[in-house]
């Protein structure tokens, strides 16, 4: 399509989206639901990295931790404090789930930044499943814990009576937009960053602009490391906020 036309006319080749293709690991067959693909490979790597940090690293159970163990404890402490601060004491029951989400996203983002890596969180299918899982479980928790009182989330009693129906419509819409923005934010950030790096890298084929291009790639890479962490943090903290809304709907 567009990129190919450009490639023919200028000699530059831009394939910013090629890095996101899901390919089978063995052979060239169609991608069935069970086929081991590069998604499988990188999810396995993510899983192994997390296990290496959190199971192998804490094997010593040392009172005075070594480096790896203190990193694991740092991550544990950060998410634990976040859940405690944002959701409250009764939210700590859901801490393992939130911790898993945070770890999976942060490792996927960071490992995806390795050259030649495949970023699983850049796919809307993955982030949509994560966001929908959060959305559905939070809604179920809200109804189980609070019953119909949970609907008070949409009926703003502090507003004047005339405005309440209007606000209720807005609140309902914003509630159902949550999983959409929740998933697209993460996937879009990851996709955008990687695509921009790829485009800058494509310019390196021209000798004249290649130093600028390499500098730009370096700068974007630094920014992407920051974004990779912040997006994982934001995903987690928004999960905490939604959970707080479900547990304490009375604002």
């Amino acid at each position: 399509m567009a990129t190919e036309a450009q490639g023919e006319s200028t000699g530059l080749e831009f394939h910013p989206m090629e890095q996101f293709i899901v390919k089978p690991l063995f052979g060239d067959g169609p991608v069935q639901w069970y086929t081991p693909t590069n998604v499988t490979l990188w999810m396995g790597i993510i899983l192994l990295a997390i296990i290496a940090l959190f199971v192998m690293g804490t094997r010593g159970r040392a009172i005075v931790p070594n480096r790896v163990q203190s990193i694991a404890e740092l991550g544990y402490g950060m998410v634990h404090k976040m859940v405690g601060d944002v959701v409250g004491k009764d939210g700590l029951k859901y801490f393992p789930y939130i911790m898993c989400l945070f770890l999976f996203i942060v490792f996927a983002n960071m490992l995806g930044l390795l050259p030649k890596a495949f970023t699983v969180t850049s796919h809307i299918a993955v982030t949509a499943v994560l966001a929908l899982a959060v959305f559905i479980s939070v809604t179920v928790i809200g109804f189980v814990k609070n019953g119909t009182h949970f609907l008070g989330l949409f009926w703003v009693t502090s507003a004047p009576l005339v405005l309440r129906p209007v606000l209720a419509v807005i609140e309902v819409i914003s509630y159902f937009v949550r999983p959409v923005s929740h998933s697209i934010r993460l996937a879009g950030n990851m996709m955008a960053g990687h695509a921009v790096i790829k485009v800058f890298a494509g310019f390196a084929a021209l000798a004249l602009v290649s130093p600028v291009s390499i500098l730009a790639v370096t700068a974007m890479y630094g920014l992407e490391v920051l974004v990779a962490f912040i997006q994982a943090y934001v995903f987690t903290i928004l999960t905490c906020v939604y959970l707080k809304d479900a547990l304490h709907p009375g604002h």
């Binding site: 923005s181 697209i184 934010r185 879009g188 950030n189 955008a192 912040i230 943090y233 934001v234 903290i237 928004l238 906020v241």
Partner: peptide, 13 residues
């Protein structure tokens, strides 16, 4: 961070 995330999400859209 929540505020930044909300502002940025719309740019991502």
């Amino acid at each position: 961070f929540i505020g930044i995330a909300f502002a940025e999400a719309l740019g991502i859209f």
